[in-house]
Design a protein around this nucleic acid. Structure first.
Lengths: 251, 251
DNA sequence: ATGAAGGTGTGCGCTTCCGTACAGATTGAG
DNA sequence: CTCAATCTGTACGGAAGCGCACACCTTCAT
């Protein structure tokens, strides 16, 4: 069931919450922004909302500003696993640009907030027409590719503890506070492990003084500590994002 | 250490072994083929040869005809994991087109054979210039993306037995015989598990009459049986390849 | 205030896979 | 033919994670 998006009317919010909060949009040259931004629409997305079901055609391109999106696979058994995180550094709907129009995974909102969206046809037209936007979007595609590949390796070789650290950092990079709103149940489904596994791992991190946990609220106390405890996967992906998209901060 | 490629001189081989054995090249319209094919060079690749080290700039685009390539991650601990397979259905060096020029993983030859290669600059120029080639290469990129994503999920949730089936099928689709030349040691490093794990899984498949194994030679006896025993991941990726690249046979 | 719902901590037996060690089998070079 | 190298089979203890069960503890609506 596709929840309806809530378009935000032209209010003060639109003016104090510009599309350029999204780093990709902000990195586009002025002429492309001039054409694209007027076509964009601010939408409010709520936690858990399903943006796109597997195999269905994307009608819009989404550029998060304050929300975080998650690409999630659903298996026949009901098991799930997150394969990519998308925040203000990027966009959802790569497949519109790649020409496939759909992908076999779900896209859900894992942190409530805002995003700008634009009709797929308009986005694709701009992509085909302007080399500057093409370069940017293709480089982002490669960054996303790297994130997925690293997720595959991480799933194979690293412990739940390490993966939780990586996962927290990945999300922390995409919000402006140091507090994540996320139940253990939800984290477990993203990492594709048991809820009890997260309870234990989070307990370890809390004992180590790295985070503070309370009923769906995670306060990050020691970012450096998390980085030290995370597997190499986080740093590799971050380095690639920085290399490919030098003007964009989040990993 | 980068082993030197062996360029194959203009002999009868070149004539009876055309670039169009590669399905991507074969799918290009005549005018693009007219420009690109004369620039291509047939190279012979041997088992285990390292085509590209992590983080190094790709100088050529590779289009396998009879060889199979593998994108492999190396972790700090020495652990490895394959994240994608590339055969005659595709190409290595996506990052040339995406603009990143390098990726943080290795590319190795996992089944000896031939490939055509072309200078990166020429390939990129053609990509930028001809919409037809761009559409094709971008759709292939999405297919590759799907393969990686599915690998991530598979690594998380499926047994070695299932993954071995998927892996055998993935390779079988990219060769013309029903015999794979591959030691258990090598397979283990690709799947990121112990060699003994493969011994056991292969033993199971042999007992079930699906394959016959002998010192680095695997004969596939019952393809349908393998498909039935594999996890859903194989079918999902194959379906996406077929959908995105309708004129291309291998998954 | 109070009961229900949702979120978290804990324990226990089980499976899968890992690490290690070693023995047997096949292949190929001298 | 013979020996060394390579590949494969087997065995065993241990670690990590799963599935399940259940006891708490917050929060929130009635």
């Amino acid at each position: 069931m596709l929840a309806a998006h809530t378009p935000v009317p032209e209010t003060t919010l639109g003016r104090i919450h510009p599309p350029t909060l999204n780093n990709l949009l902000a990195s586009l040259p002025a002429d492309v922004q001039g054409r694209l931004l007027p076509e964009m629409e601010l939408v409010s997305l709520s936690l858990g909302q399903v943006l796109q079901e597997p195999g269905t055609k994307w009608r819009y391109g989404y550029f998060p500003t304050t929300c975080i999106l998650s690409k999630i696979y659903l298996l026949e058994t009901g098991a799930t696993a997150e394969i990519a995180v998308i925040g203000r550094e990027g966009m959802a709907s790569i497949c519109l640009l790649m020409g496939g129009d759909s992908m076999p995974n779900q896209t859900v909102v894992k942190s409530a907030g805002y995003a700008y969206r634009v009709k797929g046809s308009i986005l694709k037209e701009e992509f085909d027409r302007s080399p500057a936007s093409q370069i940017l979007f293709l480089r982002y595609t490669q960054a996303l590719l790297t994130q997925m590949a690293q997720t595959a390796v991480c799933n194979r070789h690293h412990t739940v503890d390490q993966q939780l650290c990586r996962w927290l950092l990945l999300n922390l990079d995409r919000i402006s506070t140091s507090e994540l709103i996320m139940t253990q149940e939800l984290i477990a489904s993203m990492l594709g492990v048991r809820r009890e596994g997260i309870t234990e791992a989070a307990g370890n991190l809390q004992d180590a003084g790295l985070i503070r946990y309370s009923r769906g609220h995670i306060h990050i106390l020691d970012r450096k500590g998390l980085e030290a405890r995370a597997c190499e996967c986080y740093a590799i992906v971050k380095r690639e994002f920085d290399r490919l998209l030098p003007n964009i901060t989040a990993a």
